[in-house]
């Protein structure tokens, strides 16, 4: 009986280690809500889908810099001064404008520390917005589609012969 104790203990320990590693590998990078309720129920389906507004009309900095950017209240207002002015959500939007407050949008796509990502270079490589952000045109409430894990980035970089040098992204 005593002979069996040590092998059994070792077996248990290695099993636990393997289980923990498998769990760590499969856990999502970002455990926050994938589709949280935003302060204003903005519908991408209505704007980008039904009305065919280009992504870059609102996310203006995608073409010129690392961050695509969230439009300021002034840009929302520039249309909504004339369009759907009576709707409850637009009245809510105007409230932010009158109080000179930014809208506290919740960020969905947050990259971990030590990751350098730039939108403009990916647009230059003609990667469609949908490739990472999913079918935004059909989303009434925006949700995160991609895992944003390193392996997911690397797969695409390998397929497109983009650089897989560590310092390309980790600076």
């Amino acid at each position: 009986m005593k002979k069996l104790v040590l092998p059994l203990l070792l077996l248990c320990a290695s099993g636990l280690t393997l289980g923990a590693l498998a769990l760590l590998y499969n856990l999502p990078l970002d455990t926050r809500d994938r589709s949280p309720a935003q302060p204003i129920p903005f519908s991408h389906k209505l704007h980008a889908g039904d009305y065919q507004i280009d992504c870059r009309f609102c996310h203006r900095h995608a073409e010129s810099g690392p961050v695509a950017g969230i439009p300021d209240v002034a840009l929302c207002r520039s249309c909504h001064e004339h369009i759907a002015t009576e709707k409850a959500t637009i009245v809510q939007l105007k409230g932010y404008w009158e109080r000179a407050e930014p809208i506290p949008w919740l960020r969905l796509h947050q990259l971990p520390d030590h990751v350098y990502f730039t939108h403009v270079m990916h647009l230059r490589a003609q990667i469609d917005c949908r490739y990472c952000h999913g079918e935004v045109r059909t989303m009434v409430q925006m949700r995160r589609v991609a895992s944003l894990k390193m392996g997911w980035c690397l797969n695409c970089h390998r397929d497109n012969q983009a650089s897989i040098d560590c310092w390309t992204c980790h600076i």
């Binding site: 971990p112 520390d113 030590h114 040098d165 560590c166 310092w167 980790h170």
Partner: peptide, 15 residues
Amino acid sequence: SYHTAEGLNGQVYNR
């Protein structure tokens, strides 16, 4: 700590 193709001596902090 690794060597890049451009002769730099890289340090990957998250590693």
